[in-house]
Design a protein around this nucleic acid. Structure first.
Lengths: 116, 116
DNA sequence: ACTTTTACATAGATTATCAATGTATATAAT
DNA sequence: ATTATATACATTGATAATCTATGTAAAAGT
């Protein structure tokens, strides 16, 4: 479906969601739009993919939810990041950055020269 | 066990292995050592984790193997990257770099200030 | 002789997305 | 009014992928 491989989506979903909720409280549908925004349209999550992840993160107490009525009268489940979630985001950032450094090191050692 | 999450390991194993084989022909045991080297000891793969991945990549014809006798007389299965594998590595690099840019963008928007 | 390291393989458990489907409300268009 | 579209959340079933544990075996070091 998307541009990215399943495993890359899996590895990025947790830090992305936590990062977005660090910006402030949000809800499922809005998170999907925000992911599309910050990726310049590259990442298009489906709702069937997102909600199970949100439920998992809530079970891990990294985020918490509250049903609320918006001004327009819409019934929405608003998520916010917990203290544990902030710490987890910190750790996720570090892991991601470390792994990225390893990759870049390896690739710099043998830069691909051909254009295929 | 390892420092990194399962999903991050999953997302990185393919480009790491392809990148290492781009350096030249190698074999299972040696690849595990190489991964530890280039990660400064951060990534320690188990053999039970690596071999299924090698088999999968071979099935996808991104790498190919040949049983060979080393000078010491050791019986080893040597893997090398295929043309399709080189192309796949190219794509993997691009995807990884794109995803990394998305992450860095998001994180730069809300830098974590606290020290926990 | 014995232990450690090297070397490959697989079965079973666990974990995770993803596509498909269902429900429901609000808004815009006809 | 009626229809269509966008908004909004949820779950089931299929699929895929690692990880632990276990097995086999040869070479090298002690």
């Amino acid at each position: 479906m998307g541009l990215f491989s399943k495993s890359l989506v899996a590895a990025s979903s947790k830090p992305l969601i936590l990062g977005i909720l660090q910006e402030g409280t949000s809800y499922g549908y809005r998170i999907i739009q925000r992911v599309k925004e910050i990726s310049n349209g590259q990442i298009e999550w489906s709702d069937g993919m997102l909600y199970p992840v949100l439920h998992r993160l809530e079970k891990e107490v990294l985020i918490e939810s509250k049903w609320m009525q918006s001004e327009e009268g819409r019934h929405r489940k608003y998520y916010s990041i917990t203290e544990a979630g902030k710490e987890a985001l910190h750790v996720e950032k570090a892991h991601w950055t470390n792994m990225n450094n390893v990759m870049q090191n390896l690739w710099d050692l043998n830069p691909s020269t051909s254009n295929n």
